[in-house]
């Protein structure tokens, strides 16, 4: 029962204290340039971590091969 006042206050606050928010990163501009920039940066931010992970695995593999070569010689 203690939760009821909190729910009522929150409900009233959401009715009267609301304000507009931008739902997406590019809502401030509808230009073609912004759309292109959004696509480009999305691709960039998607590819970059994958590329870093692949680079990291490659680096560790090279280190392993280097150590193996030292062991064999």
């Amino acid at each position: 029962m203690k939760a009821v006042p909190a729910i009522v206050i929150t409900g009233l606050a959401s009715l009267f204290l609301h304000f507009d928010v931008q739902a997406c990163a590019v809502c401030f501009s509808s230009s073609e340039n912004t759309r292109a920039a959004f696509y480009l940066t999305t691709a960039f931010l998607t590819v970059l971590p994958v590329a870093m992970l692949i680079g990291g695995f490659y680096w560790v593999r090279k280190l392993q091969q280097k150590h193996d070569a030292v062991d064999q010689s």
């Binding site: 230009s31 912004t34 920039a37 940066t41």
Partner: peptide, 10 residues
């Protein structure tokens, strides 16, 4: 950089 490019493009 992404945020900069999007803001700038607009």
């Amino acid at each position: 950089i992404s945020a900069y490019m999007i803001i700038r493009s607009g």
